[in-house]
C-alpha cells in the first residue's frame, strides 16, 4: 500500500461525479466514455457527433491543463510492448461495445441509477480484471 492516495483519489472521484451530474442536468446524457467515443464514429446525426467530440476535447484538454500545473509522473513499464497495447486496446474496445459500457458508464453513472444491469457489469469487469492481473502475475511473472 505504499502508493495509496486516498485524498487525491477521492477528490478526483468527486470531480468525475460532478462531471457526470453536469452532463445529466444540462444535456440529459450519461457520461460513459466508451459510448461517447464510439458515438463520434457511429452513424448518428452531426449534432450527436459534435457534442461527443466536444466532450472528448474537454477530456483531453482538462488532463492537459491539470498535468501542466501538476506534472504526472508515470513509471515506464518494460514488459508493455506495442503488441500488448494493441491487443489490450482491441479487447477493451470490443468488450465495452458488446457490454454496452465501461468504468464510467456502467461503473459511475449506471451504479448511481441503481441499474441492475450496470451493477452486474461492474462486478463482472472488476472480477475479470482482478483475475487477469492475478493470472498474468502468476504465469508470466510480469
Amino acid at each position: 500500500m505504499e502508493n495509496f492516495t486516498p485524498y487525491t483519489s477521492l477528490a478526483g472521484g468527486i470531480l468525475i461525479g460532478i462531471s457526470a451530474s453536469i452532463l445529466m442536468l444540462l444535456n440529459g446524457r450519461i457520461a460513459g466514455i466508451s459510448g461517447i467515443v464510439s458515438g463520434i464514429f457511429n452513424g448518428s446525426s452531426l449534432h450527436e457527433k459534435l457534442w461527443r467530440l466536444a466532450f472528448v476535447v474537454g477530456l483531453i484538454g482538462g488532463a492537459f491543463v491539470y498535468a501542466n500545473y501538476y506534472p504526472v509522473n508515470i513509471e515506464p513499464r518494460e514488459h508493455m510492448t506495442t503488441a500488448l497495447l494493441v491487443a489490450g486496446g482491441l479487447i477493451v474496445g470490443f468488450g465495452t461495445a458488446m457490454g454496452g459500457g465501461c468504468t464510467s458508464g456502467h461503473g459511475v453513472c449506471g451504479m448511481s441509477r441503481f441499474s441492475l444491469r450496470s451493477i452486474t457489469a461492474t462486478m463482472t469487469f472488476l472480477i475479470s480484471g482482478i483475475a487477469t492481473v492475478y493470472l498474468v502475475k502468476t504465469f508470466l511473472g510480469a
Binding site: A11, L15, I16, A20, V57, G58, I60
Partner: peptide, 15 residues
C-alpha cells in the same frame, strides 16, 4: 459537453 469533459479530465488526472 465541453465543460463536463474538462471537469472529467481534471478529475481523472487528479485521481
Amino acid at each position: 459537453a465541453l465543460l463536463a469533459g474538462t471537469v472529467f479530465g481534471v478529475g481523472l488526472t487528479l485521481s
